[in-house]
Design a binder for these strands. Structure first.
Length: 114
DNA sequence: TGTTTGACCACGG
DNA sequence: GCCGTGGCCAAAC
């Protein structure tokens, strides 16, 4: 057993993303004070493998599905978002600013369940 | 053990 | 408005 690492926190935050909403790597990294948004992407790389982490709800700051190429099928990520009511066009989230969800919405004392 | 990479972001030209 | 560079931290080779 080990202490909760940074990506454990990422899993918790991504897991709490409401359905039909999307978040960005920078927002999560900023909320967790990781200082490096790349770590979020790296963590999610392992997350979608077996954990119940909706990584499809996490996109880059442009609202583009940058991680679609790492999914089993590139269209799977888009299909997932559309299934949740998120409109994706040209690999970009439509009304991204409106569907954007910030982890601070959980509150500063969010809890991590491993 | 040192180097390289990585689903990024911000800034400068 | 697009392209290039730096920074950031951790895991993989």
């Amino acid at each position: 057993m080990r202490q909760p690492t940074y990506y454990e926190l990422v899993y918790a935050v991504v897991r709490e993303i409401p359905r039909g909403r999307v978040s960005t790597y920078g927002a999560i990294a900023d909320f967790l004070a990781l200082g490096a948004a790349r770590m979020v992407g790296w963590a999610l790389n392992k997350s979608f493998l077996g954990d119940d982490v909706p990584a499809h709800r996490v996109v880059n700051r442009k609202g583009e599905l940058s991680g679609r190429n790492h999914w089993p099928t590139p269209i799977m990520m888009q299909e997932m978002l559309e299934q949740e009511g998120v409109v994706v066009e040209d690999n970009c989230v439509k009304d991204f600013e409106r569907l954007f969800w910030h982890p601070s919405a959980l509150g500063e004392d969010f809890e991590v369940h491993p």
